[in-house]
Design a protein around this nucleic acid. Structure first.
Lengths: 248, 248
DNA sequence: ATTGTTATGTTCGCTGGCGAACATAAGCGC
DNA sequence: GCGCTTATGTTCGCCAGCGAACATAACAAT
């Protein structure tokens, strides 16, 4: 049998929700967790699709996106290994108006709708964590709504870079400005301008689909408050139970 | 004993969540439901407050608001008799970064945190409805994020008017343009301009804190898609169980 | 090395909402 | 009726992001 390193995407506990589960719950679920690759650009679900799996990313990043009739769209939230994708399964609605798309390639473990509903219905720690994560997601979405309206492109780009970085293993993002534009709901040119400014200020460097953050503290200095606000709320809601479990 | 008319704010079943509960659950909760007035402008909770009650409005409207450091703010969702206020109680986070404010005076029944957690833990229809409502709230918030970014003032004002109207009993809104500006995260002058346009087009009339919608179909004609999108999603998620129960 | 493709750079005029300052006007207290 | 407060009307210059058009530059394939 292969030994799996802790840092490998194959370790289910790289996903923080799975990692926070009590041993008993974790082991009961383990046989049903299916390892799956999330290639870059994969549209995991379209708006309104009946969702059949709950995904727990171990690496990679997934964007939750709202599309408008005229073709415009905006990302409303980012999910990485701190959370899960497909909450409508346990929230009861079966589908959501948002689409989900893999923004940075990686891996996930997935659980079938049936098993997840069973586990959720037990009312144990999984239910607790799932709901806490969902609350954090609401905060992220709400903050995005305010941020979209009140903050500049450069600030929003900075926030997006930092949030993506937090969900990555390294300091390089494989993403074109065109794609960022789609996610942020602005033109590619606006991204170019903002990115150029950040590069001139020595905060990032980029070239043809690769963005590298070279001065993270500097980036944090001039990002809008939304970044910290969301991060704090995730920490408040989600690190406590992990801690609790670690103490047991 | 006083007889309470069905249309009275004193009828708990004016709240659609309560109305959708099976008789057994409803009757068990009834003794714990406390009737309470929600006066205009009441700040039910501030950002980060530990929330002690879950409110089920029977009349009136509550705004969920995000505040920024510079004093700016934006409403991220509206809740009326179709839902509830204080979801962090059963979601597990105890508090939220948003504040809640009564935007249109009315009444509500409230349940203490303790009782609500008990009832939720039973895993029955209340849990089911609470989660469905929460999912609908996520949709509303997400749509707001996209709308804030892509649609004009006049459209967003129209959407806000229609959404408020849907949660009211009559066609008059008691609200100043100044207040609407705060909620929509724009200047009062921008509201004046947009409202002036709607009035000139014969869709609304207003004067000193009273807005009356005189041509609802006309308003619906030129509102952005976000209005219908959210409404449909609420209908999909929340009317089905009510129906089911009605058929039993 | 040549060519095609994709990513990024740059410009120009336009418009919606901003910030500030000030003007009217409707209701309220007395 | 008088004055005070609050709600709405109007103007002006400003700027961020838009839409469109086009220019360069890096990489890929052959």
């Amino acid at each position: 049998m292969l030994k799996i390193a802790k840092e490998s995407p194959h370790d289910p506990k790289r996903n923080l929700i799975l990692a926070a589960l009590p041993a008993r719950d974790y082991e009961r679920m383990l046989p049903y967790l299916e390892f799956i690759a999330m290639p870059l650009g994969w549209r995991m679900s379209e708006s309104g699709d009946h969702v059949n799996f709950l995904h727990f990313p171990t690496t990679g990043i997934v964007s939750l996106i709202y599309d408008l009739e005229n073709g415009a769209s905006s990302e409303v939230a980012l999910v990485g290994n701190e959370g899960m994708v497909g909450i409508s399964i346990f929230m009861g609605g079966d589908s959501m108006p948002s689409s989900t798309e893999v923004q940075s390639a990686g891996y996930a473990y997935r659980l079938s709708r049936k098993i997840m509903k069973q586990e959720f219905a037990l009312g144990g720690e999984l239910q607790h964590l799932a709901l806490l994560f969902t609350q954090a997601l609401i905060s992220q979405t709400s903050q995005t709504a305010v941020c979209n309206q009140h903050h500049s492109m450069a600030q929003r780009l900075s926030r997006w870079l930092l949030m993506s970085l937090d969900r990555m293993h390294d300091d390089k993002l494989m993403v074109t400005q065109e794609l960022i534009g789609n996610l942020l709901g602005v033109r590619r040119e606006s991204v170019t301008e903002a990115a150029g400014k950040l590069q001139k200020d020595g905060l990032i460097t980029y070239s043809r689909g690769v963005i590298k953050v070279v001065d993270r503290p500097g980036l944090e200095m001039q990002v809008c408050e939304c970044y910290e606000a969301v991060k704090q709320e995730y920490a408040r809601l989600l690190t406590t139970p992990v801690f609790k479990k670690g103490l047991k």
